[in-house]
Write a protein that binds this DNA or RNA. Structure first.
Lengths: 192, 192
DNA sequence: AATCATTTTTGACATGGGCCAAAGATAAGA
DNA sequence: TCTTATCTTTGGCCCATGTCAAAAATGATT
């Protein structure tokens, strides 16, 4: 059950076996059925979840009621609303399973214990946030300065596993255009 | 010279006077004239700079040669390319002064010393990154789902001090549209 | 297998915002 | 103060993308 997540940790930092063993004791295994929410807008996020199995989407609903997808996550990724989790403030986003999922959950209390006991984990979580920030920055640049075709091709390159698993209109909402238009983009691309 | 930055630190964490005194010894005062670069694309960022005086812009140049402004920063803000700084990897951005500036510089070595000596500063820098991440997320949502008029009004609200200090076309490049179009947006708004 | 719900595709039409070029306005530097 | 460079405004035209509505395809449930 814990091999994958331990390997993830080791890629961030050379932990000792007993550090990892302790880490594992703080994780709660949880099944979460398809099309259910791990978090809804307004709630305070009480988890960082490592995905053993399944596919999850984080999204925001804007004033006009449209969904904007912030992130897709699959096996070997973490999902959370880190802002809400850290500050214990109400979240702006929904976190929803797109498939039946198996997760390992880290609660705020257990994270605190972990960091107090094995400070090396600070590094792992810092790297995760930093990676997030860097990716988000690049995504902003792309959102502002590339065309729909470029955005879609870039998405396929960057996340080749996702299109096979999630409905196309979710990808449109990630890229920032309408599902109809994504369909037209795809038609255009396949015509060549 | 250090009152403002010490006050900044205290807003993040209740430091002891001698912690702050030590912090101050690690900061290098630096003048930087208007229209010069603190960092250029491809360089590795060797600073986090606290702005005592002046105005700074961080931007990226995309494939087609267009500038996308990532951030404006004025007095009592920090600027850096944190991704490049932490990983010591080449930066994707330019950091340029828009006015004559006075800065307090923290180098990677001094930051390391600081964190080793006063671990409480971890918190300050973590908060800074986190705030950054939260803001960037919200900005992405706005970039995707609001109109040009809404973006501009939101900018005025969020950063009322900026428009008085920076050229309008920089604001356009922050909001993601052409300078001509921003001018038309402003005309439309003033007509009402 | 049949039905119902959800997605995707298509086409017609509307529009927000880009691009270009020229004219005005402002600011910087000598 | 004058000159020159930079920035902003304006107008015209164009195209990328949105919206709406309907049809086709796919998937889920009984």
């Amino acid at each position: 059950m814990f091999e994958k997540i331990n390997a993830y940790a080791l890629r961030c930092m050379p932990f000792q076996p007993d550090d990892l063993a302790y880490f594992d004791t703080l994780l709660q295994y949880k099944k979460q059925p398809r099309k259910t929410f791990l978090l809804q807008e307004g709630e305070v996020c009480q988890f960082e979840a490592y995905i053993l199995k399944g596919c999850i989407r984080t999204y925001h609903i804007d004033q006009s009621g449209a969904e904007v997808t912030l992130q897709f996550a699959i096996e070997d990724w973490w999902v959370s609303d880190i802002t809400s989790f850290q500050n214990q403030t109400p979240s702006l986003v929904y976190i929803e399973t797109l498939e039946d999922c198996e997760l390992l959950i880290l609660t705020p209390e257990n994270k605190e214990k972990l960091l107090a006991t094995v400070p090396g984990f600070e590094r792992m979580f810092r790297l995760m946030v930093q990676r997030n920030l860097a990716q988000l920055q690049e995504r902003l640049f792309r959102t502002i300065s590339t065309t729909a075709v470029e955005k879609y091709l870039d998405f396929l390159n960057r996340y080749p596993a996702i299109p096979q698993r999630v409905a196309q209109h979710y990808i449109a909402s990630y890229l920032g255009f309408s599902p109809e238009f994504l369909s037209k983009v795809r038609k255009k691309l396949s015509a060549q």
